[in-house]
Design a protein around this nucleic acid. Structure first.
Lengths: 106, 106
DNA sequence: TGCAATGATGGCAATATTGCCATGAATAAG
DNA sequence: CTTATTCATGGCAATATTGCCATCATTGCA
């Protein structure tokens, strides 16, 4: 395993890791349909404002979302159009696993 | 945010979290093309055998991979056919982000 | 200018993840 | 039966993540 390959997987893992949190998945879902400011997101997520702000920073750091500042408000939005494929994969795994557990009772 | 919705996002996040590690992403990549046993995977990943075994347990726990035991060997393979969409999304985010950094020098 | 609203950041404790070593369980070979 | 091979698991220390509180910077408004 050469160094370049490992770095590629680390870069991918960093993005996956940014998505791997229930609140952040919810936020991505919301921001895919509409631009939202931190206050609105805070209400939806139901956590402290500072917590939401840090989640947003994580998503922004890997380039999944972007900000547009309008006065005192910060409007966030999803930058890439590929999230549906991502979410569908998660759903597919969930569904498959439920089926398996139904039939084999593992 | 009701309880059922939160649980759905937690279930999705659990799967995303299972994928969110460079070694596990590599292993998923490898296991998508071919069945492999723990020893071979250990060589590819370049970590301790016990470490690889635990990574495999994480992936198996969320239903991303499955095992077939043949004597003393354990052959692992990917169970779902949706991983390409997942990986393509990661690549897309990476690529977009690189472009942005090129043009805006943020 | 003074004050409220918005959101970003430092700090910190609780929790989770990671990776190795040592060891255990199961199978294969001699 | 003895020994080697394969891989799973307990334990544990190092590290990373998470979430809240307190606080700061910026903007809008009176």
């Amino acid at each position: 395993m050469n160094k370049k390959t490992r770095q590629q997987y680390e870069a991918r893992a960093k993005i996956a890791k940014a998505m791997a949190h229930p609140s952040r998945l919810l936020m991505l879902d919301l921001l895919q349909n509409q631009e939202m400011c931190v206050g609105d997101l805070t209400n939806e997520v139901g956590a402290d404002q500072s917590t939401v702000s840090k989640h947003l920073a994580v998503l922004k750091d890997v380039g999944l979302i972007d900000v547009r500042k309008e006065g005192a408000l910060s409007y966030y939005r999803v930058t890439c159009g590929c999230l549906d494929g991502f979410f569908m994969c998660l759903e597919s795994v969930l569904k498959t696993d439920v089926e398996l557990r139904k039939t084999t009772l593992k």
